[in-house]
Design a protein around this nucleic acid. Structure first.
Lengths: 342, 342
DNA sequence: AGACCGCAGTCAAGCGGTTAACCCAATACG
DNA sequence: CGTATTGGGTTAACCGCTTGACTGCGGTCT
């Protein structure tokens, strides 16, 4: 009841173990004739090499680890879902497998994030967007593991990252809104991430640069989940504190949708009374009423590229990887010139 | 720049390789004193055993594979998310890792579903709810791999499964609605799964058993995605074809929510004009207006148990595993007695 | 003709663990 | 006192594959 191994194939063909191995690894050192014989035997036995043995000998597990934050329904979040899909597809196309990890307390306390690489369980690790609180990431500073932050970064370290260019998205959003004539804008910011802060600062800078007075950009914090509820509450706060704003900019679509719901339930019309804009371009953004103007962020592509980079890092084809991917304005119906401009 | 291995530890302590190995595997054959010495060295070097080597020698990769269907946003689906979370948590608590797989064309054509087990990449496999079209699953019939269908089953095979008791949920739903006095009910069924068909048949049976006439249970097919849009369209069809129904039963919450949206946009009130009921109890069900009456399905628990079973199958502690997990009625505001009963 | 050079394979030393079988001193027992 | 048992380790044979070094050989170059 034993599984067939490489030596069964070798015996069957009357060649050595190494020959079979070389055939299986597409080495050019084997003649076409021998190769065909070996492959026929492989086919005949339905032979599949044992990945553990292969990994042990070759020092490559052909597996990457994807680490997602420990959030309530992280496996039901389109934001993470898109990135994971991108990673999975790229990995799969290159005969890699994806291992899942959740950065929960156990993961951090036991320092599993280091052990996973140390135990050679995976060739590389991808950390999807965690928050500023995840200071343990600093431990990777100085190590030369195939390690990549996906859609976030860690200041003052040499950690590799690939992420959406949030500053640029902020600029695009600011230009769109100011271009329509808005100059008193409420910003629902996400401040528990470095990218969220960058977005906030870049947005304010871009607005003032285009003629808004800094005090007319009213900032409120969304909340740590960046959820619809957070957006709802933030809009409530924003509108109760300053009635004069003509537009709300949210740091992601979910909060924008929550804000829109608040605005609607309070008898205001979007975009006639107030413009609302988000960031990310999640599928739902298309189906809100009115459709949500947002900055499209190619998260699937980001995931694919992240996986590509981490494999290059593993193979030593890359020393450091730091990339920014630009978003693009996606204009829908939730933004329009303010009332007094029409 | 080599990693520390088991022999480094052995040398440091002046014991043999096997002693270290036995300590690491909690063998009772080593004295407390020696054990302490070894563990101290392990600590000192920050040693972590190489999992590939361990897997090769011990014939266990301490990893399970989770296969999800190839759907549009499967990594962003609360239904799959809950199950995966359950699997992940159980696995993680037992020092297992989770490998991800998507049953896409490549996966099926290359018969990867067999290779993953053959190549010993994983100890067990969990297939989350696929449809009746996934006939390739039949190939597992007769094999004694640690293999489990999660929340579906395959008739006329010996494939192991663990799933929600959909027939029972159908009965509970039918009893709730008929109990309120409904006897003309529209059913939005999901018919591309065996469990969906069972649900439909059991629902009809339970209704007729409780006095409804079979022709008053109007059945329409939802669609292959079981999505809100599917529910929306199905409700439209249902209400245009038979105005007399007083309740709509959907085979899952998402379709129920879609149906509710249709009903609302057409000026009818839930539950005054028509009752609506779903199945699953996803988080959104709590936040609809009115709150959706549904049958709660413990998907997280299902995932946990599924992982437990598959590991027991792997260790040979279980020969076959076939389990049903019961749902429980979750009464909210979307169901009430029909107009003529009040 | 002799040195040299691929070409097509083979040899054998790993990769880093696990575990059945064995070994030896100390204790238990008749 | 001789023998069986047991606690605590060790030995060595794998697990199944990769890969650098080596070999034999026919053809090239000088």
């Amino acid at each position: 009841m034993k599984r067939t191994t490489i030596s069964d194939i070798a015996r069957e063909c009357g060649v050595s173990l190494s020959t079979v191995s070389l055939v299986l690894n597409n080495s050019p050192r084997i003649s076409a004739k021998t190769r065909a014989r070996v492959l026929a035997a492989v086919e005949k036995f339905g032979y599949q090499p044992n990945m553990q043995a292969r990994a042990l000998a070759s020092r490559s597990s052909r597996m990457v680890s994807v680490v997602v934050p420990h959030l309530r329904h992280v496996f039901a979040d389109i934001y993470f879902g898109e990135i994971v899909s991108g990673i999975y597809d790229y990995a799969s196309e290159h005969d890699y497998k994806v291992m899942l990890d959740v950065a929960n307390r156990k993961f951090v306390q036991n320092r599993e994030y280091l052990n996973i690489l140390k135990t050679r369980r995976v060739d590389g690790m991808l950390f999807i967007a965690s928050s500023m609180e995840d200071t343990y990431l600093k431990e990777f500073d100085g190590r030369k593991d195939a390690f990549l932050l996906v859609n976030h970064y860690y200041p003052d370290t040499d950690l590799n990252y690939i992420m959406i260019d949030y500053k640029d998205s902020a600029r695009q959003a600011a230009e769109h809104l100011t271009g329509l004539g808005h100059c008193r804008i409420g910003l629902i910011a996400g401040v528990n991430t470095y990218t969220g802060r960058d977005f906030r600062d870049a947005f304010i800078a871009a607005c003032t640069c285009r003629g808004c007075r800094e005090k007319d950009i009213v900032v409120t914090e969304g909340g740590r989940d960046w959820s619809q509820e957070d957006g709802f509450r933030a809009a409530e706060k924003l509108l109760s504190e300053s009635q004069s704003i003509t537009a709300i900019m949210a740091a992601n679509d979910r909060m924008a949708i929550g804000a829109m719901r608040y605005v609607h339930t309070h008898g205001l019309k979007v975009p006639e009374d107030i413009s609302i804009m988000g960031v990310d371009d999640i599928p739902d953004a298309r189906f809100t009423t009115p459709g949500l103007t947002t900055v499209h962020h190619p998260l699937y592509t980001l995931g694919r590229r992240a996986c590509e980079v981490v494999l290059q890092l593993f193979r030593g084809e890359l020393d450091a990887g730091r990339e920014l991917i630009a978003g693009a304005l996606s204009k829908r119906e939730s933004t329009a010139p303010p009332r007094d401009m029409r």
